[in-house]
């Protein structure tokens, strides 16, 4: 019995994420922005609005937006940057080799270096939540 209970608690803890509701909502808004843009590629205004609300939620609760999401948002006009539809993506060899994503509407530029073996901070395996939780659980002897 006790073992079972403990297991359940560990399970619960494993899935506990602070601000889960806000993340849920942000996820929905991001998807909504995508869906409106896919329905009609000219309907940027609404997708912009959704992205802007998503960003303000993140700002209010001090949540970090993952780079994979953040890199698809224009920081100037909150447009969802889809290559070929709302942005142009070009490789540039000058200076250091890098990727240039330009927002079609406000011409804001995003540059990403294409360095070999570069790893984003958020992609480091030791920082991931599930590995952290597993580690904590292993320390406490909850997991074999």
């Amino acid at each position: 019995m006790t073992k079972n209970k403990k297991g359940k608690k560990a399970e619960k803890r494993k899935y506990h994420v602070p601000n889960r509701e806000a993340f849920h909502r942000m996820n929905f808004l991001y998807q909504a922005a995508h869906s409106t843009l896919v329905q009609n590629p000219n309907n940027i205004e609404l997708s912009r609005f959704y992205i802007a609300t998503m960003k303000t939620i993140a700002k209010r609760l001090v949540l970090r937006i993952d780079p994979s999401v953040k890199r698809t948002i224009c920081k100037r006009c909150h447009t969802l940057l889809l290559p070929g539809i709302t942005s142009t993506v070009r490789m540039r060899a000058k200076r250091e080799r890098h990727l240039v994503v330009t927002c079609i509407f406000c011409k804001q530029v995003k540059r990403f270096l294409t360095r070999e073996g570069h790893q984003l901070w958020s992609e480091k395996p030791e920082l991931r939540l599930d590995t952290q939780i597993d580690k904590q659980a292993a320390d406490k002897g909850l997991l074999p």
């Binding site: 329905q39 000219n42 309907n43 205004e45």
Partner: peptide, 13 residues
């Protein structure tokens, strides 16, 4: 930038 244009004011969208 947030105003919906009249062409996009359609229920089906």
């Amino acid at each position: 930038i947030y105003d919906i244009k009249p062409d996009h004011q359609k229920y089906t969208i």
